[in-house]
């Protein structure tokens, strides 16, 4: 199994925590609003083929929180800066949930960010029917209940959720949540101008969704597809908001086929 290391990289005047592992071409993985779960099974599998970079967004995990990062657009600016500095432009990327939104914002700003990109259960576009679930008025347990369609098929369940969080982990989660709020409170989890700006995207884009996503309605897969000409869509059946955790084998298969 590829060995992951934890590194600290100085970017834009602050420290960025990055898990890095594997070998091959770089693959940038952008986590969702809930925080960086580290190199889970899917990341280990991808690291067999790629050098996986899994940073904790500014304000998350052990990364610093620069005061100027107040919106998803600021975050996208931060990451294009990171890419330029680290020579990681024109790389493959996967964005999960809010990380998918982040990838989409970066795509809307520059053609140099990614060579291929996967948007997985991505936030960022407002559904026409229904709403993206408000995760800020429910507790972590309730969020988890909504994220996973069928917990019994989550291979890493015990490892991830088997024990109660330590006080440090709980405090970390609170900090992560604050950062998510800073970035996504208003308007909630979307940017009304994003669909129009995505028309410029010309890199291969794969939109992947769990069929039973209870957080970001699967309808949004179609909206991203409409916004990005030539994109392809895959919907994984019998699966919730996080296919990479709930059905890692199916997810990795789809990712490797595309990337």
């Amino acid at each position: 199994m590829p060995n992951f290391t934890e590194e600290t990289i100085s970017v834009a005047g602050g420290n960025l925590q990055v898990y890095k592992g594997g070998s091959g071409d770089p693959l940038l993985v952008l986590h969702g609003a809930g925080g960086n779960a580290g190199p889970r099974r899917y990341a280990q599998a991808l690291a067999e083929k790629f050098t996986v970079y899994l940073p904790s967004h500014p304000g998350y995990g052990k990364s610093d929180r620069p005061g100027w990062v107040e919106s998803m657009q600021d975050l996208a600016c931060f990451y294009t800066w990171f890419q330029e500095q680290e020579g990681l432009e024109n790389v493959r990327a996967i964005g999960f949930s809010m990380g998918g939104w982040l990838a989409a914002e970066m795509l809307s700003m520059t053609g140099h960010a990614f060579s291929k990109v996967m948007l997985v259960g991505a936030a960022g576009i407002k559904p026409n029917d229904g709403e993206i679930t408000d995760i800020f008025i429910i507790n972590p347990q309730q969020i988890r209940d909504l994220v996973y369609h069928d917990p019994s098929q989550v291979p890493e369940w015990d490892e991830m959720f088997g024990t109660d969080p330590t006080p440090e982990q709980a405090q970390q989660a609170e900090g992560d949540r604050e950062m998510a709020i800073r970035l996504t409170w208003r308007p909630y989890m979307h940017n009304p101008r994003l669909p129009a700006k995505l028309a410029r995207v010309s890199v291969p884009t794969h939109i992947l969704w769990g069929e039973n996503d209870n957080l970001v309605p699967v309808e949004c897969a179609g909206l991203f597809h409409q916004a990005i000409a030539g994109s392809q869509v895959t919907v994984i059946p019998n699966c919730g908001h996080s296919p990479q955790i709930e059905k890692p084998d199916d997810f990795v298969q789809a990712a490797l086929a595309f990337l």
Binding site: F136, I137, I138, N139, E174, R177, E178, I181, R182
Partner: peptide, 14 residues
């Protein structure tokens, strides 16, 4: 008051 409304995360300092 529905408890989550009583204090949105980030409303008060740590």
């Amino acid at each position: 008051v529905y408890p989550p409304f009583a204090e949105s995360p980030g409303y008060r300092s740590i």
